[in-house]
């Protein structure tokens, strides 16, 4: 995994601003975009470990606490 700048925010607006202010990668490969949002992390961190994705900045948005996601009823989805 390559080193990256890490930022964490609980505010959607500042997350978007941080993402927008990060320098753009010269290559057009979307896998090499210089900033990535970190939500669950199960895909991003896995790909970063494998060197597939190499962001220069990681913006942790786990603290956004999206109310609609919290309202999902997994039990009903699994058993109804």
């Amino acid at each position: 995994m390559q080193p990256f700048h890490f930022a964490r925010t609980a505010d959607a607006k500042s997350a978007v601003l941080m993402h927008g202010s990060s320098p753009k990668d010269a290559s057009s490969d979307p896998a090499n975009t210089s900033a990535q949002y970190l939500a669950g992390g199960t895909t991003l961190l896995d790909l970063m470990k494998l060197g597939v994705t190499r962001p220069e900045q990681v913006i942790d948005i786990n603290d956004l606490g999206h109310p609609k996601l919290a309202a999902l009823n997994l039990e009903r989805m699994a058993f109804d």
């Binding site: 080193p3 700048h5 890490f6 930022a7 964490r8 925010t9 941080m18 202010s21 990060s22 220069e56």
Partner: peptide, 12 residues
């Protein structure tokens, strides 16, 4: 440096 715009510092 929590929540600081960490653009200048070395990520290492």
């Amino acid at each position: 440096t929590t929540a600081a715009p960490s653009s200048a510092a070395d990520p290492r």
